[in-house]
Simulated scan of single mutants.
Amino acid sequence: MSLAQSTTSRRALLSAAALLPLAGGRAEAATAAPGSARDHYARAAKLAGRDPVLTTLVKALTPGVTPAQPKAPKPLKIFDNVAVVSTGFVSVTALLTSGGVILIDALGSPDEAGKVIVPQLKSLGVDPSAIKYVVAAHGHDDHFGGAQYLADRYGARVMMSPADWKLVAAEKPPNAPKHDLDIADGRRLTLGDTTISFHHTPGHTPGTVSMIFPARWRGRRHTAMLWGGTNPPAAVADKRIYLDSVLAFAATMRKAGVDVELNNHGAADYGLARMEELRAGAAANPFVLGRARTQRFMKVMEAMMRGRIATDLEAGG
Rank of each mutant, 00 (worst) to 15 (best):
Q120N: 14
S91P: 05
P67N: 06
P75F: 02
T87F: 07
A37P: 05
A44W: 02
L54N: 07
G49T: 00
L96R: 01
L61D: 03
D51T: 01
D111E: 14
A42M: 03
V101W: 08
R43M: 06
V82N: 00
V90R: 11
T66M: 12
D105N: 12
A44P: 04
T87R: 14
G64A: 10
D51G: 01
K71N: 05
A45H: 13
L47K: 00
P63D: 11
S91Q: 14
P110I: 11
R38E: 14
G88I: 06
G99W: 05
A33T: 08
I104T: 03
G108V: 08
P73H: 05
D105G: 02
V118W: 03
D111T: 06
L54W: 01
P110Y: 10
S86V: 09
L124V: 12
S36D: 08
S36G: 10
I102A: 13
D80F: 07
A45F: 01
A37T: 06
S36M: 06
L96Y: 04
I78S: 05
P52Q: 02
G114I: 09
S86Y: 12
R38T: 07
P119A: 14
S98Y: 08
A42K: 09
A44M: 00
E112P: 01
A32R: 14
G100A: 14
K74G: 02
V85G: 03
I78F: 04
G114K: 15
S109Y: 12
P63E: 03
G49N: 02
S91K: 09
G108P: 04
I102T: 15
S98F: 01
G88D: 09
V116P: 03
P67S: 10
